[in-house]
Every structure is written in structure tokens, then in C-alpha cells.
């Protein structure tokens, strides 16, 4: 976690710059929260286009995992994931850190973004559903 301040700083700088350049009109648009959270918390590993990184980091774009394990995703974000997993038939085995700093509603927006970006067509979540799914790992903060 200790690297977060660094990367958070960098990322916010990058984000701000990117936002200033590309999305001036979307600043207050809450619809974009998921996209921003993705850029902020996930893109450094999973890539700007969700493409992943070779056999080190699995893709989230076009990943069968998203539909197969849809109900597990809120806890995966909250608690992280490690150990061997298979995505689109490829074996991965690295560590994804948990995200304790996100609220239930942020996780909802984030997952809905992931489920619908880059041509993904996964089923969306409601906040209530995400909070319930997070209860499985005692990960709901009720917000």
C-alpha cells in the first residue's frame, strides 16, 4: 500500500492533465466516475484499454472471467486476488492488491464501467447488489 501515495499523486496529476485536455465538459458528470476510477486505480496494471500485460496481468477487456465470476468481482476488487487463475484459457499467477479505500458505490460504478467498456457486455450492478455481494467478504462499508 505504501506505494500508493506515489502513484496516487502521479495518477492524479496524469488524470488532471488528461481530464483538462480531453474531457473539459465531463468534469461534473457522475457517469464518468467509473471510468475515472478505472484510470486511477486499475489502468496502471490492466492497461488503458483493459488489455492486460502478456501472461503477467490478465485482461479485463473481453475477459470471460467477468461473466463467469460476476458475483465474485466486488470482493475481488475489495480484497484483491492472488494465486493461479485462468482468464480466456490463459494461466496467470500474480498478486492483485485489494482496494480498501473505495466505497461500495465507487466499486459499483467501477464495475459497471468495466462490464460495459471496450465492447464488454456484462450485466450491470446496483449499489445494493454490490453491498450484498461485498458482505460475503465482510467488505461492505455501507456507502
Amino acid at each position: 500500500m505504501a506505494l500508493r501515495p506515489t502513484s496516487a499523486l502521479l495518477r492524479s496529476a496524469v488524470l488532471l492533465a488528461a481530464a483538462a485536455l480531453a474531457l473539459p465538459s465531463c468534469f461534473t458528470d457522475r457517469q464518468n466516475e467509473g471510468q475515472k476510477l478505472y484510470a486511477n486505480h486499475c489502468a496502471s496494471c490492466h492497461g488503458d484499454q483493459g488489455q492486460g500485460l502478456r501472461r503477467l496481468i490478465p485482461p479485463v477487456a473481453g475477459a470471460d472471467y467477468l461473466t463467469k465470476y460476476r458475483d465474485d468481482l466486488p470482493c475481488l476488487i475489495r480484497r484483491g486476488q492472488q494465486g493461479p487463475i485462468i482468464v480466456n484459457g490463459v494461466h496467470y499467477n500474480q498478486v492483485m492488491p485489494g482496494h480498501e479505500d473505495l466505497t461500495d458505490s465507487q466499486i459499483t460504478n467501477l464495475l459497471n464501467y468495466v462490464q460495459s467498456a471496450w465492447g464488454n457486455k456484462g450485466e450491470k450492478y446496483t449499489i445494493r447488489e454490490v453491498s450484498e455481494l461485498l458482505d460475503r467478504c465482510q467488505g461492505s462499508d455501507g456507502q
Binding site: L3, R4, T6, S7, S44, G47, L53, Q94, V95, P97
Partner: peptide, 16 residues
């Protein structure tokens, strides 16, 4: 380092 949670994947992909 291989377990670096933030910037290393980005570094690796840029080095790649």
C-alpha cells in the same frame, strides 16, 4: 520488483 503494486507493470510494459 515483481510484486510491486503500482508502477512496475507500467514500467515493464514500457520497457517491453
Amino acid at each position: 520488483f515483481t510484486t510491486c503494486p503500482s508502477i512496475c507493470p507500467k514500467m515493464s510494459s514500457e520497457m517491453l
